[in-house]
Amino acid sequence: MVRFYSGSLLLFLMSVGGASIDAHHFPSQELQARHQAIIEELRCPQCLNTNLAGSDAMIARDLRREVHRLLLEGESDEEILSFMYDRYGDFVLYTPRIHSGTIFLWFGPLFFLILAIAIFISIVKSSTGANVEEVDREELAAILNPNAKELD
């Protein structure tokens, strides 16, 4: 049973690791993990929706090599993402930066949620208010004096 589990785990890891097959050398496991995290976070500029980790495009291969080089030079993750942003813009980051061009993307859904709640509340308020008044004047009168119409 244990063998079965470790075997399927191995298969799983193979399929994950198979996406990019560059022969980059890393002095530490930690650096390799950071490399993997960064290339998964960056979108390949040539492909419409594939990250650097999963693309075979030439530019993706070159950018993976650049990420490797910058990591070995001791740059932080943030510095590497900025390096890519300065060259390829918003497109390259799967988590776009907040500025005037992306503000709607970030806060648009929140804006619409608040708007929807506000509309919902105002509709509920106005409709219950109207009902109370109608019941008060017309229906109540009818209930209290069922023969009023006939009398008129």
Binding site: P45, Q46, M58, I59, D62, L63, E66, R87, Y88, G89
Partner: peptide, 10 residues
């Protein structure tokens, strides 16, 4: 392709 990367070429 290093200059191309600096130019944002894809």
């Amino acid at each position: 392709g290093t200059l191309a990367i600096d130019l944002g070429v894809y």
